[in-house]
Design a binder for these strands. Sequence first.
RNA 1: GCCCCCGUAGCUCAAUGGAUAGAGCAGCGGCCUUCUAAGCCGUGGGUUGCAGGUUCGAGUCCUGCCGGGGGCGCCA
Length: 615
Amino acid sequence: MVQDRIRAYLREHDIPEPATWRFSKPPGEGTWGISFALFPVAAAEVRAKGLSIPVPQRAQALAEALRPVVEQIPGVRAEAVRGYLNIYLDPHHYGRQVVDAVLTQGEHYGRAPRRGERLMVEFSQPNTHKAFHVGHLRNVILGESICRILDAAGYDVVRANYLGDIGWHVIKWLWNYLKFHPGEEPPEEYKTRWVSDLYVEANRRLKEHPEYEPEVRALFQRWEARDPELVALWEKTRQWSIEGFEQIYRLLDVHFDRVYYESEMEEPGKALVEEKLIPMGIARDYRPEGPVVVPLDELLGLEKPTYRTYVVLRSDGTSLYATKDLPLAIKKFEEYPDLVRSIYVIDVRQSLYMKQIFKTLELMGYPWADRLYHLAYELVLLPANMVQEAEEVELEPDESIAASAAASEGDGGKAPLKAASSREGAVLLDKFFTEAHRRARAIVEEKNPSLPDEVKDQVAWQVALGAVKYTMLARENTRTVTFDWEKALDFKGNAAPTIQYAHVRCASLLRRAGGAIPESVTPTHELHPAEIQLISELAAFPQTVQRAAEEYKPLHITNAAFRLAQAFNDFYDRCPVLSAEDETTRAFRLRLVAATKQTLANALRLLGIEAPEVM
RNA sequence: GCCCCCGUAGCUCAAUGGAUAGAGCAGCGGCCUUCUAAGCCGUGGGUUGCAGGUUCGAGUCCUGCCGGGGGCGCCA
């Protein structure tokens, strides 16, 4: 509406329209409205008409001219300030609309209409027969949140997982199992841990006794020959891993719609190389002296090393990871031909490799090659001593706390950091979450001792998982997350528990008010700046969701959720709700509280974080 | 050698090319007989690594340096 008025005015006065309309928030707390910078318009006009007026001066003149135009809209007040047109909305009138919209839409507030467009997000991609550790956590948490955000933005999302269920690591594991643990079975509760321990053990044995290596190679041959007995054992042990992963996914509230297996891509991958890539002249076959490669730079006529050379098959004809990613991409589009995007959530170190895959598929002529997208994220770093401590087989939780505390304080110098990985020694998730829960539980005990034990436990899980997820999501994807207990489980400030706590305060108010939300009212009292600020944050939420989806950045949601929590806490501190001056004020504020609770819950939901009723 | 990412307050991080660069933590000082103090208020803290350029306007875009991390034909 505002835009229409401005456009009409510009047209009337023969002033060029801006190419893109961009509105922002006017500065200052406790106001609600939109701001429009006239500089681009003024600059374009000055250029088009060859005027000799300074742009800022012309922008201010335009803003002043537009002020009365915009103020014709009821409930709107405008100011022309330093080249900006600040448009303030009457919070009595529009505030009611915002609150009503939130409460009417409920858990759908912030969600966009269905677009009828499907996209796939592949994430997690754990290796079976190996550990699942904190280094994998960012991927899962990021992937899940991206899926939720894209879904909210109106896309139909296919969540895909791709299990690394074959390769040397699996063979090593099977060798160790057959030789030293025949017939053993994992404990029900800690399957991943048990499987992972055996993998670490296999590596240790092979390092200490290189003479075993021929045995492992022989086992690989048996695998290549698809020895039925070995295949059966592989399937059985793989299932243990998968069940362990499912335990973790359940804990994290993550699910997948489609699971692909690396083992399924092996044969199609080899066939693709032999029957397509080589005959098409895309791949060069240097076997047996060398591997089969796709010389991308040469094919593209690039002087400067850009895509480099992509190795798709070993010189002995066995497959690589790279062999399997091509048929995987193809299979995705065979199953879902209508994908508007196929997103790979994979860490940044594989950027070049991803570009190679995408470019090779493009050269093969697949029309969907430009719909492949690598969503890169940086690693999780751990203080070196935390990694070392974790390498010790038996580690008491308290020792690990001490270690990380020493690292985070550090006497002037920074503690060296190490990427979390399974080779270096994993910080395993069961231990990690046990400790996170223990810490959260202690805080719950301190803050709210009257809660029943079961509730305390439940709240502790919500807080612990929320804190960890928030830490992983509340930063730019391209920046490393440095992990330590103190910060990840910091329950103060810009962290999940602050947001959860605001939600709890809302819930508490509504409980005390008897549970029923009053009928819609237009406030008659003079609105406190804190109230206006809160309304402003509520109103901004749907746009934030859109932006987070466009940019694949949960960070925008964490920022919005935290701002909303801050605005609510400010409101809570200054504006009595239950004992408000009059019934209308009380009713409006109760509705505002209910709307805040709903929006906080919706935001947390997009982050995969639970919103407790008490804590 | 080539390529990618990062560099913002003591620390951890924000900031669709827009107004006086903001939060949290840590520090200091206040606020709980009144809706949950996991909160709120106040206070100090900055040459946005450096130098140019584009622009009415640059933390943001371009170029070159400096510093840190990562990646570059048979690992995944």
